[in-house]
């Protein structure tokens, strides 16, 4: 955290990689007073990225803190700020404030089996966590990754899949919503795959991240499968401006998504209103 909470540091774009047709991944180096500075963070945290003169957006960090080097952000073009980001080139400067938010409770997750469930761009925050888990493979039990998207070309971070599959005691289950040419994997919505796999709760934590409708069904299915509310972890999305619990926008119940979240256990979610 920089000393003046609303003043961003400079994030210099080092490279840009296409994730899907509407999503780019920016690799940035953080600079302060013209010098590169380290940036430490936890999986699941986010940062406020800004295009100077256009605005600021909260974007989750998709790189992994266990791997030294640049910080990565996957940005889907949805509004003005993200559109402006998509028009940037390597060498350009973004503003960055962060890391913000609570991140995943990695220490408490140690020693457990983990079921990752992700849909679409929802894999962006999970990717950091998955790589964290795989980098500390011995600290965790069995790993299952269920990931789905509408179509094969909308699967994010496809370059990671082979590495994940190759990791010990790790399985990757990919799915797309509807049959498509050249796709030999399973077809169906993510909740259906969750049901089909029917991984028993036991010592397992489920971490789900994706569009609200997917989360809704996944949570129901997990509850039906006997997962306890404490063992289900998800992330919430809400409009944010300051990212530090002051501007008041992301307030739901007594929580502020930006500081109390975005990662919540289902047991915590049940203490706040379900509609906002």
């Amino acid at each position: 955290m920089n000393e003046l909470m609303m003043i961003p540091l400079i994030a210099r774009i080092r490279s840009i990689r296409e994730v899907t047709f509407d999503t780019l991944m920016f690799e940035v180096a953080i600079e302060k007073d013209g010098k590169e500075v380290p940036f430490s963070y936890l999986p699941g945290q986010f940062a406020e990225l800004s295009v100077f003169g256009v605005g600021e957006s909260p974007i989750s960090i998709t790189s992994t803190c266990t791997r030294p080097g640049l910080v990565e952000f996957a940005v889907r073009e949805v509004g003005l700020v993200t559109e402006a980001m998509h028009n940037m080139r390597p060498g350009d400067n973004m503003g960055i404030r962060g890391p913000l938010g609570n991140g995943f409770p990695v220490d408490e997750m140690k020693g457990k089996d983990i079921l990752f469930i992700a849909g679409g761009i929802g894999l962006a925050p999970l990717r950091g966590l998955i790589n964290y888990v795989l980098d500390n493979r011995s600290d965790f039990g069995a790993v299952d990754i269920i990931y789905g998207a509408r179509a094969p070309n909308l699967l994010c971070f496809d370059w990671e899949f082979d590495t994940w599959k190759a990791a010990p005691d790790t399985r990757v289950h990919l799915t797309i919503d509807a049959p498509a040419a050249g796709w030999n994997g399973s077809v169906g919505f993510v909740p259906a795959i969750v049901k089909e796999l029917a991984l028993p709760p036991g010592n397992r934590l489920a971490v789900a991240c994706g569009p609200p409708i997917m989360i809704k069904y996944v949570l129901e299915d997990l509850a039906a499968a006997g997962y306890r509310d404490e063992d289900v972890i998800t992330t919430l999305e809400m409009k944010m401006k300051c990212g530090v619990g002051k501007c008041g926008r992301c307030n739901i119940g007594a929580k502020y998504i930006c500081v109390d979240g975005p990662v919540f256990r289902l047991s915590e979610l049940k203490t706040i209103p379900s509609e906002y």
Partner: peptide
């Protein structure tokens, strides 16, 4: 009440960021 919004303004090669009161 203390909620605020953040806006950017650009002119030429420079600009400013400011915050202004907002309302829920």
């Amino acid at each position: 009440c203390h909620c605020f919004d953040v806006h950017d303004e650009r002119h030429g090669n420079g600009g400013e960021r400011f915050r202004k009161w907002d309302s829920c």
